[in-house]
């Protein structure tokens, strides 16, 4: 393909958008609306995911060191615990003195209950262990228990199982809704393109009768779809920002246990996703729909 052909296609696409203003606006609107619905759902899903992550990160396994070991020996167990399982991401040693201090803080005003225990601390030296995959909690706990010098392991595998369940459900729901929305978007867009092309079928037929090959006829239409898709995506991004900042965020804030994700942190991700989807749906959509009009 020669450069003057490409420049002709682009000029042709741009001028065609200007000449078919109503149809172009309709296409931009449809693409923007579909992306906006998809984007809104995604923003909610991302927030749910981030909350689950937050909860997950607070779920930990505690490994108590055998009291027969002195503090120094206990502090040296870190490496053997870490070696117990590949799932382990973080191993923190907490001495009995530190544990007592934390306990005190948690009791707050009632901390005087613990007075006098410093000399004969009943708590044990311990390790706080974090793991990658919560569904492996039970397995990792057993592995740590078999490490020499570990007396006992406490893991809330019931809590971690719940989180894993919620996450699976959330992921599944997210995938299903995005797929459904994608199908709806493709359907609406292909209908819009169909309508636009139907109005211009005569033009396409003339091109074909003159001896234009399919790619010559198709290219300006695809570029036109691509441009409309990208404009629709940018419009959706702006609307998404407004919608998220002023509606979704304020609504979610009432239920949220944690801080909500900022739009800014999602900006590039959304930009890429919207523009990618818009261009894909616009370009491929029109290229695909035009096929039946090319059979002349």
């Amino acid at each position: 393909m020669k450069w003057y052909n490409i420049s002709y296609f682009i000029r042709e696409a741009v001028s065609s958008i200007g000449k078919h203003r109503v149809m172009s606006l309709a296409a931009i609107g449809v693409i923007a609306a579909c992306l906006l619905i998809m984007g809104s759902f995604m923003m909610v899903a991302v927030n749910v995911e981030s909350m689950l992550q937050e909860i997950e990160s607070q779920n930990e396994i505690l490994a108590y060191v055998n009291d027969t070991m002195d503090d120094e020996e206990a502090a040296g167990l870190g490496d053997s615990i870490r070696a117990a399982s590949k799932e382990i991401t973080e191993v923190t040693y907490i001495s009995k003195a530190e544990a007592l201090e934390t306990f005190r803080e948690e009791l707050g005003d009632d901390s005087d209950l613990l007075d006098g225990l410093e000399g004969d601390n009943p708590l044990r030296n311990r390790y706080c262990v974090k793991i990658k995959d919560l569904s492996k909690t039970q397995e990792v706990a057993e592995a740590i228990e078999s490490v020499d010098g570990i007396a006992d392991v406490s893991a809330r595998s019931d809590v971690s199982d719940k989180i894993v369940q919620i996450r699976h459900l959330a992921t599944l729901t997210c995938i299903i809704i995005v797929l459904v929305l994608l199908c709806v978007a493709l359907f609406i867009i292909s209908n819009t393109v169909n309508l636009a092309l139907f109005n211009r079928r005569e033009e396409i037929a003339i091109m074909k009768m003159i001896g234009a090959n399919n790619s010559f006829v198709r290219s300006p239409f695809m570029i036109e779809g691509l441009i409309l898709g990208i404009i629709g995506a940018l419009l959706a991004l702006v609307l998404q920002w407004i919608l998220y900042t002023y509606i979704i965020k304020t609504t979610l804030a009432d239920f949220a246990l944690f801080e909500l994700i900022s739009f800014r942190s999602m900006f590039w991700y959304l930009l890429g996703l919207f523009v990618g989807m818009g261009a894909l749906v616009g370009g491929i959509g029109s290229g695909f729909t035009i096929r039946k009009f090319l059979k002349v």
């Binding site: 020669k2 003057y4 002709y8 091109m207 003159i210 090959n213 010559f216």
Partner: peptide, 11 residues
């Protein structure tokens, strides 16, 4: 002109 463009003639 566009009948010529369809054949790939230089502008």
């Amino acid at each position: 002109a566009f009948a010529m463009r369809a054949v790939g003639t230089p502008p």
